[in-house]
């Protein structure tokens, strides 16, 4: 871990502490990706950067400094716009892939 990464990690931690202290939404303060899951068939993703990969069984979404992998069958992007996206299908797993 170089100096830059350490600084960045510290900043995120500071942001989280700030959000906790003032009861602010953490996703806004640290610019984190927000994922809502409804049951096992729908996932709402907000504040993301884009899609990295899309197949019927796997959708990889790029967030800020992190990736999410939604696995399952018959995956469909119900809507895809600037603010959010909705993935539906038989979701079996939502995995977080930390960027090195």
């Amino acid at each position: 871990m170089n100096k830059h990464d350490v600084f960045r990690q510290d900043m995120i931690s500071a942001g989280e502490r700030f959000a906790d202290a003032f009861s602010l939404p953490k996703d806004m303060v640290v610019n984190a990706t927000l994922i809502h899951m409804i049951g096992k068939s729908d996932v709402f993703v907000e504040n993301f950067k884009g899609i990295i990969s899309y197949t019927c069984h796997e959708i990889i979404v790029k967030g800020h400094g992190i990736k999410f992998c939604v696995c399952g069958d018959c995956l469909l992007i119900e809507h895809y716009c600037n603010d959010d996206m909705k993935i539906s299908g038989q979701i079996s797993e939502v995995r977080v892939i930390r960027e090195a």
Binding site: T55, L75, L76, E78, H79, Y80, C81
Partner: peptide
């Protein structure tokens, strides 16, 4: 998405 074009029902 970046240019504000809405897409929906995207399926492989």
């Amino acid at each position: 998405r970046l240019h504000g074009i809405d897409l929906w029902n995207i399926r492989r």
